[in-house]
């Protein structure tokens, strides 16, 4: 009997959490479009989520492109198709790896910080204080992060893609001797608007997903399973947020691809 009780408790907790997260997203979306509009918090959050992530995006983008160049060259050379290296690298990056890896990097760098920040605000009663001052925490804390996520992720993905393509060029053409003209002409020939559109939609969705999961986890730290109190509670939900965001990005990636293809 205890076994069934436990299953029931878990089920109820997760149904509750799903409902909470849904309502959280709804309120946040509503507060993004509701006036008054304040530019400064959005610029600040875009700086934190976007600008401060550029270095890690440049670094990971370059090495992802380089490894694609390396692997792609050796695989394609088996079929004598080195000329397609440019399109192989660019399509992999634009359609798939760019949005996914950029989103995973942003989750690790900015998502965790976002969750911890909001979590600390919750446990130190700062969010209660905002509510008591009749300031909506969704409007004041969460909405600017959503807008910043929506602005930043597509731009970071674009940077990731471009740097990755040049990384692939560096290894494929510079080190392994693939034809330079063929590398760029195959990109020009094979990458069309639909590929870029798919990458753009994915990055946009991932931007919302990261901010949603990380903010909501921090926002509801006090309701988390096992008691969300103190530093331990915040550290636990931050870990949960990063893991859940990363897994959700990969799961959503599959479904988005199947819809967009």
């Amino acid at each position: 009997m205890k076994y069934f009780e436990k299953i029931g408790t878990y089920a109820l907790y997760y149904v509750n959490e799903a409902g909470r997260m849904g309502i959280f997203l709804f309120h946040s979306a509503l507060n993004m479009v509701k006036p008054p509009y304040k530019m400064f918090p959005v610029i600040k959050q875009t700086y934190i989520i976007g600008t401060l992530s550029i270095f890690v995006i440049l670094f990971t983008g370059a090495f992802t492109g380089m490894v694609l160049g390396l692997q792609g060259y050796h695989t394609l050379s088996k079929f004598g198709a080195e000329g397609l290296l440019g399109s192989a690298v660019s399509l992999s990056l634009i359609r798939e790896l760019g949005p996914v890896l950029a989103a995973l990097m942003v989750t690790g760098r900015a998502g965790s910080a976002m969750c911890a920040e909001i979590g600390v605000m919750r446990i130190s009663e700062q969010i209660d204080a905002l509510e008591c001052m009749a300031i909506d925490p969704h409007k004041y804390i969460v909405a600017p992060k959503f807008i910043a996520g929506i602005i930043s992720l597509p731009l970071l993905t674009a940077i990731f893609d471009v740097v990755g393509i040049f990384g692939g060029y560096l290894v494929g053409v510079g080190l392994l001797g693939a034809n330079e003209g063929m590398y760029f002409s195959s990109i020009y020939k094979d990458v069309d608007f639909n590929d870029v559109y798919m990458g753009f939609v994915k990055s946009l969705c991932f931007g919302v997903l990261i901010v949603w999961i990380c903010s909501a986890k921090g926002f509801f730290v006090h309701l988390s399973r096992g008691g969300g109190f103190g530093a331990e509670g915040v550290s636990r939900v931050t870990t949960d947020a990063v893991v859940l965001s990363s897994v959700s990005i990969l799961v959503f990636d599959y479904f988005l691809t199947s819809v967009l293809l």
Binding site: Q126, C132, A134
Partner: peptide
């Protein structure tokens, strides 16, 4: 929200924005 505009609260730990 309207009712809360009449409120002022001093929390136990002051709950300042750190």
């Amino acid at each position: 929200k309207e009712i809360r505009t009449h409120f002022g609260v001093l929390f136990q730990n002051a709950a300042l924005f750190d």
